[in-house]
Amino acid sequence: MFAIFTRLADWAAYDLLRLSPESKLGDAVHFFIEDVTKIFFLLTIIVFAIGFFRSMLTPERVRKVVAGRSRFASYPMAVGLGAVTPFCSCSSVPLFIGFLEAGIPLGVTMAFLIASPMINEVAVVVLAATVGWKVAVLYVVAGLSVGILGGLAIEFFKLEKWVEEYVWKIRMGETAIQQAQTSFKARLGYAWEQVKEIVGRIWLYVLIGVGLGAGLHGFIPQEWFVKYASVDNIFAVPSAVLIGIPLYSNATGVIPIVDALLGKGVPIGTVLALMMSIAAISLPEMIILRKVLKPQLIATFAGILFVAFIGVGTLFNAMLA
């Protein structure tokens, strides 16, 4: 089904640019053209389709649904809804306050915020189409588990004392839940707006991701990865997570890197740990959350995720690699 992108890349890299398929540059350029065309094509189609069919799933509605549930129901719901509810990371602060104000526990709220940037339906479909359904399913399972574990750890350590005091004093007005427009024309318009907004926001991450992936694919020999990133090297997963922490990209932008690394034989757990760490922990997100969390809680939060990513990555390697 996606062979057309391979053929397009064959033609562009080998016929049009006259690069040799055996050369490193030819290999890298081929990867670049194939992944750029494929990912942008899929991104546009998927965002449009989801925008068209989506009934309005808003953070206000999630808050209403999760509030007042038992712990056993609320954690899975929070990570599941976190994965599919769209919200701009600049809304993290009002979302955080709104959840706590509704009586949703801190652990559940953090589980939502952990899962949300890591998993989204667009990244999952692009991942499945690029590297296969198995990897996509594993990524979802890994992301949901880390969200639940991270939230439970924050609950266990009773970290409410490290939430800024003013947060507890804010009282929310009655939430006005927006009604979705359901006419065919309104849906088309909404879907198109979504494409413009989402592609406009993440195209640069995707382009950088494909560039890095193409570099890895073409210029770094497989032996290097076998030597340093094999399952036997116990430092491989922690190093992957450490590399990912300062880096930030939208989850979709990491996919070409995942594609290149898996192609080089890097174990799946290591690759997924890197992807989670790039998508979930980032400096800009921490700075935004600093408005509601004290530095101690931010540090603990980052520490918990660090440990959770290593745990999940190592476990997947032990089970699958």
Partner: peptide, 13 residues
Amino acid sequence: DMGEIMGYGVMST
């Protein structure tokens, strides 16, 4: 101001 924003019942900006 976050307090004022939330006062209108808004969680997503």
